[in-house]
């Protein structure tokens, strides 16, 4: 009868780990670059509506946001519908024109993303849109979520 001998590797099997830091650093840089740390603090309640036929905004650098919704008041209360640009609530709608015009000068291909609460009224949006027309920022985007199928 043949004698079966279990073959065993002579040398120790080790995975070379010297390249691991490089791999990890590569991943690290990827996530560092993609991370957007600065987010505006929302002063209005925002609950986006849903739609099906939506498109992605590929160039995020071109986007400037306008938030619209009921104002958050102290004590978990909600106030009237307000417009927020960057970090501040804009009470005088006429100021939007200058604000957006300045942004347009900085970035001529500006896309204005309107993030509007689903229960806010259309009238406010019209007023803001009229200001945007005056500012010359014509490319807009109604921010919506994808409808769950």
């Amino acid at each position: 009868m043949a004698n079966f001998k279990k073959k065993q590797a002579g040398s120790k099997q080790e995975i070379p780990t010297s390249a691991m830091p490089d791999v990890v650093f590569m991943l690290l840089f990827f996530f560092m670059v993609t991370t957007v740390l600065r987010e505006v603090t929302l002063k209005v309640k925002l609950d986006l509506t849903q739609a099906n036929n939506i498109e992605k905004i590929e160039q995020k650098r071109l986007v400037s946001y306008i938030y619209m919704g009921p104002e958050r008041l102290p004590g978990n209360q909600l106030g009237d519908d307000k417009v927020q640009i960057d970090d501040a609530i804009v009470d005088d709608l006429g100021a939007i024109r200058n604000l957006m015009y300045d942004k347009l000068i900085e970035e001529p291909r500006l896309i204005v993303s309107l993030r509007v609460d689903q229960n806010s009224e259309f009238g406010l949006l019209t007023d803001v849109q009229k200001e945007l027309q005056q500012a010359g920022t014509f490319r807009i985007n109604y921010s919506t979520k994808r409808e769950a199928d």
Partner: peptide
């Protein structure tokens, strides 16, 4: 900390005033 949130929405072009 990364949130890979793709911005989606309905694109429109406003008419000039």
């Amino acid at each position: 900390t990364t949130t890979i949130n793709v911005d989606t929405g309905i694109g429109m072009v406003l008419p000039p005033p």
